[in-house]
Design a protein around this nucleic acid. Sequence first.
RNA 1: UACCUGGUGGUGUAAUUGGCAACACAAGGGAUUUUGGUUCCCUCGUUCAAGGUUCGAGUCCUUGCCGGGUAGCCA
Length: 564
Amino acid sequence: MSEPQEKERSLNFLEQIVEDDLKSGKHGGRVATRFPPEPNGYLHIGHAKSICLNFGLAQKYDGTFYLRFDDTNPSKEETEYVESIIDDVRWITGDTLHNRIFFASDYFKQMYDWAVELIQKGKAYVCDLSGEEVRATRGTPTEPGKPSPFRERSVEENLDLFERMRKGDFQDGTRTLRAKIDMASPNFNLRDPVMYRIVHAEHHRTGYTWCIYPMYDWAHGLEDSIEKITHSICTLEFEHHRPLYDWFLDQLDGIFRPRQYEFARLGLNYTVMSKRKLLELVRGKHVHGWDDPRMPTIAGLRRRGYTPESIRNFCKTIGVAKFNSTIDVVMLENAIRDDLNKRALRRMGVLHPLKVVIDNYPEGQSEELDAINNPENEADGTRKVPFSKTLYIEQDDFREDAPKKYFRLAPGKEVRLRYAYYITCTDFKKDADGNVIEVHCTYDPQTRGGSSPDGRKVQGTIHWVSADHALDAEVREYDRLFTQPNPDDPSDLNDYKTYLNPDSLRILKGCKLEPSLRDVNPEDRFQFERLGYFCLDKDSTPEKPVFNRTASLRDSWAKVEKKG
RNA sequence: UACCUGGUGGUGUAAUUGGCAACACAAGGGAUUUUGGUUCCCUCGUUCAAGGUUCGAGUCCUUGCCGGGUAGCCA
């Protein structure tokens, strides 16, 4: 932990609030936050912002952080999602969350009892209006709503009806429990909001023990109160819900009083971040699953080779505010490059192989050369790479007609094979279609290791793999899934699919990798020189190794070429 | 149209709470380099507008303009 740097950073507005509360002695100096997802989908990078915020706050102020499932709507929720969310939150925070995972469904009985208390206080009533009728009587921004004809039912009748709702005497949609607040409020949330609805469906945890389920507004503050959350942080669209959040808490005596704060959710260009749309992508088979490396899900980013550190760092640099902003995805891409540059092991890999024969190198001979594992970190040491007469280089690294500033291999030109020898191109062969299929070179035995005794310079250095020793692998390259700057913004479900990038996945077969890549750890990350960062895919087998491209390297060759 | 909420470089986030507008990313330029990567240096904004208070305003007040949110028995 880089403690001194941490203290230099200025506070974001939430840290400011927490510090003020700490100073004033609120909650006895205690800080408790939570991340409260509904288990109705996989987590995505937007959730990461919330997780980092809540976890970071608890960590910074020596508080507690809970993962709480807001599982109050059985029709949308599944155990698969619960498991993936636990996994993802653990991964991002690096915390086991031992004894700190809770479920709203565990509080159903307590919430029910509190609802009864509200009825007894004359603050809630059972309403027989249909959904249609409720909508029709809610009013408009300019006109107040009309009171429900059932608004003045007696406490006894409400108690009886609510009890029968719970026992399953009524069909879905026939009755609700509503809070008696103010049908004329300019805030729609206070126009007698529904607290409970009837849903005869199997809940992934409580089964059929309940057939009435609390609405978000009724449930959320209670959950926070039960868990003694001091700072309940949610996104901006819940701002209008805060008066209701407070109203519900006000009605109950002697309970812990949390407070809600709002921040702007993450907006990333080129990225769809709605669970509904991501679910559509999965169901419609536009991607291979929730953990498809092109998905903005935590599972997808993780499979692609993103590290939790890079995501935490990303969240730190984008900051928190109440302004709805759109962050450029290059920020995220930069975060992973930045992290991987420091830690990824350097390896040589050739994605588009071109055969090179060293004519003056003895047939059947081979030797081992020393290569540095990571110039950014000397502790990573060195390794041996085999060299022989026949090699593979990247197709891009040879040009028949080299442009002016092209530093790589071309007829008559000399380049350095990294960690090996200087070679000079003497000849090349083409196939019937005019594609270069083989390049012939001579090497200078004096330049072993990559430097010459006469001190002559070569402009270019290229990577290579010995043909006889190479590992054959499949490499998957990923591009952005969407081509439009902000498809998630105004467009609807139909529109955003037109922005799907058909070239977002490229599978490269017959890639040649240096033999040390034969036995790698799934957690290892590699930089293939000039190509980018890679990691092993979960589909990989020893017979058929598969690597994912995590991120590309910044490549300014295009700029050089443009300038001529 | 009613209510809520926000507006600081190309993009985001800061500004000791009224005291010389800073940091990151992007872009452009340069240096170093056994890959054109990495690293390092330089350049790029008078804070939505107008008015007011003040010695002094990004910060406080007024008005206007623009953006986002809200009328589920979703969360």
